[in-house]
Design a protein around this nucleic acid. Structure first.
Lengths: 197, 197, 197, 197
DNA sequence: AATGAATGAGGGTTCATTCAT
DNA sequence: GATGAATGAACCCTCATTCAT
């Protein structure tokens, strides 16, 4: 079983996460990533087709984990209200625990290279879809009020994203902990949760 | 009067806006920008110190215009409610009219180069400040309810940003027109506008 | 009469002398010389064919003056001994009074560009020739003893050149004044002046 | 053992010596040196920090060899007279055997770039120091007469330098062989060697 | 004659990728 | 598989030279 293979693969992804987060994609030379990962430059090309492929694999893998966690979390919930709170908590916690990923998401997500943009949009759209599903179901069940689910999702995601963005960019960031209730309260207001019927 | 000087300066900025929006900063070679602007490569260096300087000048100038417009718009308003609606409308309209700028804002804003990030953060923080002022005043006057102004601003800006982001990335984007009312309604809910007293 | 023409020509040569001495030929941009001379970049091309032409004109002109002065000085002398002393004094004085020229001579004389080297070698060979004439005459008249006039000239010139070189390169150079007698004494020994018959 | 590494390093230095000697530092493009050395442009940067570093390394290394040889030669000598003759012979022979180095020394020694000049002055001053030591000892032991050791060194070095300079610049140079005795004789006269006691 | 904005070829350097070991 | 020396295309920037005014 290719344990060592898997190990090196992960080491490179970890190194890349760190490098991309700190220096950005274009300022993270393969040699820098290789050194961080403790492998030779050439070794990277045994695991990845090229530099772009690292970025894409990285995002897909890490975002996949995140989405799995989100999915898992909301499975246990009974109501849309609970689900939204759970997503808020998971989103903020996960990004806080993976500052590098958060930074990287904030920064490299917006990459302009079309190939990368394309590859990256998949996992992100999946996350958007989950949020929209929760909202739609909430609307259908009369748990919340929302004229446009897409705009609802944009507000929901945009808010969390802006919070993480501030936290990531700020030099002495106040913790994201404890913010969940404040945001949740705003969301409830926006979606009229608890006000209807 | 140095009309031609000013003209070329603007031509280069326009070309850079276009290039950065389409290809990103790192994939926009000076020669590409020069060709788009209809000048020689060397000419660019008569107007800008280096490539970074183009990005910074570009953002500062364009964002400055945007902020002026926002400021001008809200001056005429009587209430926080009106001001928020006006900001929403102006933000969405301005970005729609300047798709390149919107794209560029989405993408390059998150630059990883510290020098650039620093230079760019100024105008953006100014915009954040305006929003927070409006919110604070609204709270003080009892027009809206909000426990944490910063989070309120993050929601407000994050939502608009996510909308523009979707619009920019989407291949056949539905217009941002007509969305204002929907968002505004969500915001009113979130901020309890019209519910208090 | 083209006085102004002549004035600008000299201003440019002066500026170039200064620039070349301080920064060397390759690090003295036309724009730098133009600014020092108080003229526009383009103006330089009304007086000189190209950058190389400045260097060549400069050297030819300045070295010409120097050679004229040398010639004039030795005309009045009666003996080879006197002539050599006079050359030593003139050489050291002239270079000390024209530090820029001295520096420039030391540095740019040795330029590697064949065109320049060729153009420069003329005046220099003329100077060598004068020295060799003095030596030959001295030998013929029995005033000094020397098996090989060329080597004699090499010693004579090489010594002065090394002195100027040290003076130019040294940060706190001791004056070249007062050195004349010391060198002259060495030369007399080498050429057996005053020892024969 | 890193033979190949060392080999390529030397190949680049050799190529640079040749190029600098023929075209000068500024006219020797990295690509030209690379081609001469039989390596790719980028390879040069695996061995040298930048173009300047090549020049400095080159001079330091070659001049170091030369100085070692000089030191070694004079160790065996009994008198100042012998030592001076030995230096003359070694200097002329070494430069003749390394025409490129000689040319390069003549030309690039006088570099105007301060960084380079600084780096280059070290080995040269070392050589000067050796000559001055020999002269001082000779004076102390009563073997030669000299009022100013520094001027004595300037004459000694300046003469040899001018000889090499002539030889290098001349298109059909007469050999430097056989000149040793002539120069040595001049030096003996200048320093009153053999006349005192 | 004088200007200086504009030009664009050229060069030092970087770095993703390859490949012999 | 793993290495890392070598490659060379690509890019930013400089600056001698031109030319419309």
């Amino acid at each position: 079983m290719s344990r060592p293979r898997e190990e090196k693969y992960q080491a490179i992804l970890d190194a890349a996460t760190e490098a991309f987060a700190e220096y950005g994609f274009f300022n993270s030379q393969i040699s820098k990533i290789a050194k961080l990962a403790g492998v030779a430059d050439g070794t990277i090309y045994l695991y990845f087709k090229n530099k772009e492929d690292i970025l894409i694999s990285l995002f897909t893998e890490r975002m996949g984990q995140f989405i799995n966690e989100i999915r898992h979390e909301i499975e246990e919930c009974q109501s849309a209200k609970e689900r939204l709170l759970r997503i808020i908590k998971t989103h903020l916690r996960y990004m806080q625990e993976n500052r590098s990923l958060a930074m990287f998401t904030q920064i490299e997500l917006r990459q302009s290279n079309p190939t990368i943009r394309e590859a990256i949009s998949g996992p992100l759209r999946e996350y958007f879809h989950i949020i929209e599903l929760v909202l739609t179901e909430g609307v259908n069940k009369g748990e919340l009020l929302l004229y446009d689910v897409k705009v609802g999702r944009q507000m929901f995601f945009g808010t969390l994203d802006a919070m993480v963005s501030d936290w990531v960019i700020s030099k002495k960031p106040r913790s994201l902990e404890g913010m969940e209730e404040v945001v949740f309260d705003l969301m409830c207001g926006a979606f009229k949760i608890g006000e209807i019927n």
